[in-house]
Each structure stands twice: as C-alpha cells, then as structure tokens.
Design a protein around this nucleic acid. Sequence first.
DNA 1: GTCGTTGGCATTTTT
DNA 2: TGCCAACGAC
Length: 742
Amino acid sequence: MTTQSHLERLNPEQRAAIETTEGPLLVLAGAGTGKTRVLTTRFAHILLSGHAKPWQILAVTFTNKAAREMRERISALIGEPAEGLWLGTFHALCARMLRRHAEYVGLTSGFLILDTDDQLRLVKQVVEPWRIDVKRWPLPGLLGVIQRWKDRGLTPDRVTGAEDCGYADGHARAIYAAYQTRLRELNACDFGDLMLHIVEILRTRPDVLEQYHRLFRYILVDEYQDTNTVQYLWLRLLARREGAPSNICCVGDDDQSIYSWRGAEVENILRFEKDFPGAKIVRLERNYRSTAQILGAAAGLIAHNDGRLGKTLRPGREDAQGLPVQIISTWDSDAEARDVCQRIETLRRDDHALGEMAILVRAGFQTRAFEERLVQFGIPYRIVGGLRFYERAEIRDALAYMRVLINPVDDLAFERIVNVPKRGVGTAALQKLHAEARARRSGLAEAVESLLQSDGFRGKSRERLASLMDVFSGQRRTLEKEGHVVAVNGLLEDSGYLEMWRNDTSPDAPGRLENLKELVRALADFGTLGEFLEHVSLVMDAEGAAEEARVSVMTLHGAKGLEFDTVFLPGWEEGVFPSQRTLDEGGDKGLEEERRLAYVGITRARHRAVILHAASRRIYANWQESMPSRFLDELPDEYVEREGETPTRRDRQDYSGFFSNSVFSDSQNSTMAPLVAKRRRVSPVHEDLMNSAPQIEVGVRVFHQKFGSGVVVSADRGATEVAFEESGTRRVMSSYLQVMSD
DNA sequence: GTCGTTGGCATTTTT
DNA sequence: TGCCAACGAC
C-alpha cells in the first residue's frame, strides 16, 4: 500500500492540506470543496506514511454521523477496519477520557450520563429550596443558563457575580452549584459535564495532561467554526505541547457557522493564527458540487458579511454552467407550498429523483404547510429532524427500565418508570418515596421495598409495586444466567410495559411497539447491557432507513453537510428569514448568522436552487403581511431570475401604490404572484397604472384582499398602516391595497 | 390519583 | 392554529 495512490486526483490545495502534517494548520474548506475527503485522506496519510500509530491520532467531529462516515472512509483508505482509534464526537471522546479519570472530579468510572429529561427532573428537585417562581423563570431556561456556563468552561466557582445575569432572581449560580453537587452525589454527568470535567482535570492535573500530550501526536478537528469555548479549551490544552509542535489541524468554514445560539464561537476559527503561532492556512475554494450560478449567487450573498476570513468559491467542475437561481414570488404561504409541489411534480415527470430534492425551511412551523400539500399532491416525502429515535418517549422509558435493571439506585430512571404503566404512584406517593429514601439514605427502589414491608402502600398500588420489584429481581437473575437480550425482553414484557402499548388505541402505538422491537434488536449487537446504554446515551441516532425516493423536508440547520440536486428555499421574508427573533436578540451579529444560514441553504444545491417568498403568511392564527427578505436583494442579479415578482425592498418605492384598482382576482388559481410584472421590464400598461394610481394617503379608505376594508392611518414607503374594520390596525404593503372610491 | 379543561405559547438543537 | 403544561373537578 503506497501513500501516493491516495494523493492522486486531489487538487493542489487539498494536497497541501493533507501533506502539511507538522505544525498547526487551518483548512478553510468552503461548501462542497471536498472537506471530508481531505480529513480522511489526511488521517490515512499520517498513518500510511508512518508518522503515527492509529491510536496516536485524535480525530474529533460534532456528530455521530460525521464520525461514522470518517471511520468508514478511513477503513476504505487503509484497507482494514479502523478500530481502536480516538475518533469520535467531542462528547464521546471526553466520556472515554473521563471514565479513566473520573475520581479527580468526584465521580467513579461508572458514572451515568443523563438525558435532558433526567436533567429537568434533577433541577426540579434541586431548585426547591429557592422557591423559584417557575412561571417567571421556567426550568428549561435555567438549565439553559447553566448549560451556557458549561459551554464556556465555567465551573460554579468560576462564574462571577456579574455573570449571574439575573435569571431566577440572581440565584442561578447558587442553583448551578447545588445542581453540580447533586450530580456528583448521583455519580452522574450531563452532556455539558463531559467536556467541563475533563477540561477541569486537564487544567489541574499536569500529570494527566502530560499523559495525553505523549499519546496524541496529531489532532484533527472537523467543523471547527462550531466549537464552543470548552471544546476550544480542551483542544488547546491537548494541542499545546511543551517543546513539541502543535500538530493540530482544524477544518472548518467561518461562513457556515450557524450555531452561535448553542454556544459556538466563530471567534475560535477567526483567532486560530493567534492561538497557534506559526499556523499555516490552506483555503479550499474549488467547489465540485454546484453550478457556477449557484456559487455566484451564494458568494454575492455572503459577501455582505463583515469579518470573514475571506474565501471565494470557484466552480471546480467543467460542466458547471447551469440554471440561474430562481426567485419566486407568491401570493401567500399556501400558494408557496402549492408552487413548490407543482415544481416537484414537473421535475418528477422529467425523471428527476425525489430523493434528490429538498425543501429547506428556516423553522419547524413552516413544514406543516408543505406536509399538507405534499400529501395532497401524492408526493412521497419525509420530514427530517423532529424527534430522534432515542428521544422518543417509549425508547426513553425502555432505556430507563434497563438502567434500573443494571443499577437499582438509578433514581432518575426509576422515577421515570415507576408509574409507567400506571401503578397508582402519583405525586403524593412519590413524595413519600423520596422521604423514605432520604430517611434510609438509600435509593428509591430500596425505599419501595421498605415501604412494602412496612405496609406503606395499600391495595392495587401495593400489589403492582411488589410485582414490579419482583420482576426486576427476577430479570436481574436472568441477566446473569441468560444474558441481556433475554433479560430485557422479560423485563419489558413482565413489567407490563409492552402490554401498555399493545392496549393503547392511539394511532401511533403500533409504531412505538415497532421502535421498541428495533431497540431490543439493537441490544444483540452489544456484549453487555452497560455497553449498550453507553452507546445509546452518546451515539445512537436515527440512522435513516436507506435513501428512499422521497422529498426531504427539513430545517436549514438540519441540512448542513448535505447536498441535493434541487433545493427549494421557501419563506425568504423579513421576520421569517432573517428571523425576527434573531434580529431582536442578536442584532447585526444575528443578521450575519442568518445570512450564513442562507448561504448554507443555497450551497446545498447542485443544479437547481429555487427561492420563494410569499406576500402574506399565516403564522399561527392570523395572516401577516410579509416583506421580501433583504437577502433577496443581496443576490447578484446576474445569477438569478425573478419570477412573479412582488416589489422587493429595492424598488418598493417605485411600486408602492402601484396596484390600486386592480388586479389580483385569481390568487387561488395562479401559482404566480399577484403581480404580473417582471423586474426591470415594466410594461407600458403597468407604467400607465402606476401613473394613474390614486395616492395612498392618511385618511384614505382602502380595501385589502385578506383584511377587508379600512382607513389608512400612516403611510410610509411600501409599508402602510391601516385600521381595518374587521381585523384591527396592521402594517401591510401598500401594493396590496386598493383605494376605494367613495 | 386520574381525567378533562383551560390558558399560555410558539426559532434554529450536532451531543 | 394546535400543543403541552398546569390546574381543578371527580
């Protein structure tokens, strides 16, 4: 096996990114520039050229999917299974390290990893002495505050008073400390702790750090732009070795940083050269995915952001000429969905695979409209995202049963299942249980046994709880004798859990049973139940069933890293995209992140990108007028084609009042926009209309298709405020108003 | 303790 | 508009 063969068919930049093995290296990899290929080939290159043994390379990703893909591709390159590598997600790798040194942070190596439900249950307990008004300070928000601190590498003692920003009346820091104490008592970690604890250990135990410095000769990091502060600290601790070069290679794209709200710090990538002196930077700019038009449109858009490291995607393919990016204006969100479906239909007739089309939305609520239409059109689709496999209630329940099986003092799990199926244990009984457990200084399960003996339960609930405890002890014996698959089957059966779903008449019950079957099937792939649970808490994700011929509907965030022949990008309207909330909370930074999200969206497309916006959108209960997104104006004209145009911001002034006595009679039939005019090609008829249009002024009576008649309260450029008779005062676009002649 | 009703509410979510 | 959570009635 020669190294050379792997370096063939790489462009010079990719080659440089692979062959520059020594010293810090930042690979700025634009969308579709062969990032994964570089990462995996680099890994293989280091191995095959004898620079390091497999276990001396640390390779970090964010998602399990990325880790899996990398592992597979490395296997293919080196011609053997890639096992025993330090390759995985930040969290999985940290968990692995933490199991080795858990005692330094007051845990044992068998610590439990909590899911979000557990966290909530725990914080609920912890917060009690503070008598927090949970209406004002919802607990998930409190957990969010704590999580942000953990993202930044702040243990409770590192949180300053000023940081305690007032959530929960300034008690957040104290609650955080108490929460951490409880976790320790339970020998448990939440996700944030996996990073936080190991960083704390590396910070305070030079001997441990030294151990890893000797171990890891090379570090590879994927999606560096998405790292948060703890992750950055962890990498920096590991990479900066005394008297040796920092062989850290970070691959990322500052233009695709879209997770700041989860604690990601774009600054990490922007600062790379300062953090790692002598760093080299390689830019991958040749895009092998998209047509020149798509790249041009995306480049024009992202150029509006400041503070970029700077990178311009160039078409890398010969056949890169293609269609312009289409911008479609529609009357309302229904028409938008209909339009997309019709286009999908047309493409399908022309033999385009449905699996190669995607509808990428800004927010989850947008999917519903598409779902309905797709059903109506009979187009197979799948909603990607939503609840992942292990987040489903039945899976969590089953896992909780398993956790109690191998660990009778796992109170969080026990609390979850003690009354599922119903065993007559409500809040009162639960409180009694907690009291008993506290008194005996034992777990809840033991408290149940104790109360059963002392007649603490009556009637049916006594019977059922006794039976539950018997099932657990019985299946624990089975576990030893016949293994975990048999034991778990027995447990779920005898506890009545499966029966509960069989008796459930709701339409999703069969699906849930199917999921449970799937879960039990997966058990067999693991040697022990403990291994399985570890895997599940860190790694298990919905491995989508083989790529079917379905249109994908997902959020822009969810689409990162994917590509499709055709991408539909609906809802490009001010307030929706860019999202009003981001604008309010994040200001200019927020806007830039939204723009990056738009950039991510466009660059998912290989051949066709279709952007849509609607003039009127139903959000929850009511219709809202919406302006075209400013991003539409930022797309360079030479790469786009506008159709069914409503005025964009740029020409709103010219067009306002434009349609007074007209026009949009057949909004229902037409998937075209209400306005027939095409940009920059205003016909004489239209000009005529424009000139003769009565002015919309304050006090004028107007009519609006959706809101009926009303009186203009204020008029300002395109946006006009109208007091409607039926629906109150609203801001609407004046081009949708007809002036009523008295 | 369970069931039904009401009222608040509603981005993005790699682990 | 539709969902979930918290509360009140049996």
